[in-house]
């Protein structure tokens, strides 16, 4: 997905249905925007700043402060590798390395085909299942390096498609 997919009506739509009316929170709107585009397109942020009457500098400050926001396009599937304490002591960093190797990610966090983005997160709150990886809305418990390829395969296009 790239910035050309951004449409003004999307912003109108998000602002229009926001439950708290005029008391609308900048962060909440940005979260919806991010959910829709998987990142925050520059033009969308400029429009948002105008519509909410919030200085663009503040919009940018929020966009760069919080971990969930991205200013660059992300992959179709978001792989969140938990590096909370419980996952750390059970080898979460090794799972992260394995996933990056499997996806041939040498630098950067998004694969060339924009299928996957890998991010490190600090505790998904599923510590009893460590090490844990969340892909989109699916949580994988007690993951091992050996199981990683099989898990990733579920999100690859089926061969012969």
């Amino acid at each position: 997905m790239d910035a050309s997919d951004f449409s003004v009506s999307d912003i109108e739509d998000i602002l229009g249905h926001h439950p708290y009316g005029s008391d609308v929170s900048l962060i909440a709107v940005m979260e919806e925007l991010q959910a829709r585009y998987r990142y925050l397109p520059q033009d969308a942020l400029i429009l948002l700043s105008e519509r909410l009457g919030v200085p663009l500098s503040q919009v940018y400050s929020v966009a760069t402060f919080y971990n969930v926001f991205s200013l660059v396009p992300r992959g179709e599937h978001l792989i969140s590798v938990c590096l909370g304490t419980a996952c750390h002591v059970k080898g979460g960093d090794k799972i992260l390395d394995k996933i990056r190797r499997e996806l041939n990610l040498e630098s950067g966090d998004t694969t060339e085909d924009y299928r996957f983005t890998v991010e490190e997160v600090r505790c998904l709150g599923c510590c009893s299942l460590s090490p844990v990886v969340r892909i989109d809305n699916d949580t994988y418990a007690h993951l091992t390096q050996e199981r990683v390829p099989k898990v990733l395969k579920k999100y690859q296009p089926a061969t012969g498609e």
Binding site: S25, L26, I27, A28, M30, E31, V54, Q58, S61, V62, F65, Y66, N67, V68, F69, V121, R122
Partner: peptide
């Protein structure tokens, strides 16, 4: 009010700044 992945927002004054829509 939803957080956006910032550990420091557990600190009360940071949390309130976040509810107010700021960093």
């Amino acid at each position: 009010s939803m957080g956006a992945g910032a550990f420091v927002c557990g600190e009360e004054t940071a949390l309130m700044a976040s509810i107010e829509g700021r960093a």
